[in-house]
Amino acid sequence: MADHAGTQAVLPSGAESSGGEGVRRRDFINIAAVSAAGVGGLVTLLPLISQMAPSADVLAESSTEIDISAIQPGQAIKAMFRKQPVFVRNLTPKEIAEAEAVPVSSLRDPQSLKDRTKAGKENWLITMGVCTHLGCVPLGASEGENKGEFGGYFCPCHGSQYDTAARIRKGPAPKNLEVPDYKFTSDTVVKIG
């Protein structure tokens, strides 16, 4: 084999690897060494990538408790949840009736008001304040803002209109305003997230 001292290069693989058991064993070691380096490099990438995921302090902020005792029927508040607005709205009986009067099958994103609220608390409509089109904050949660043609929310960016159950009725948005996970920890406190 390639044991003649001097000029002949013993290449790790390729043309010379056809002859003999020894050569094959050598190829195997070279391939194993390169593979080990490759695996090591790939595993090293994992922390480099995961460092960009939300850090522990950000994740710790991922639930918010809101006191809703001061919200009168017909009013809404904007609260902060995961650094985004969330709308908590106390619906009037009229708004509930309007929402329930709409045939669900006629909607772009078919959902009833019941699907979007907790049983026994149908007057509390809690949705993200993030338009499902491109992420603007729709108007309608604060006093005196434009609530749009359907009495719910109106997104000024591209004209999406939401009804009193915050369902998309007109405009470019594909989905209803998202309902986050939440539960009532008492009659006056709701925990989001």
């Binding site: 390639a2 044991d3 001292a5 001097g6 390169v34």
Partner: peptide, 22 residues
């Protein structure tokens, strides 16, 4: 642990490749 394994392999590969060189 991984580095010891990989470095041993690297050493063997290095000896291999240089086997023909005095």
């Amino acid at each position: 642990g991984f580095l010891l394994f990989a470095t041993t392999l690297a050493y063997m590969a290095y000896r291999n490749i240089w086997a023909g060189k005095k």
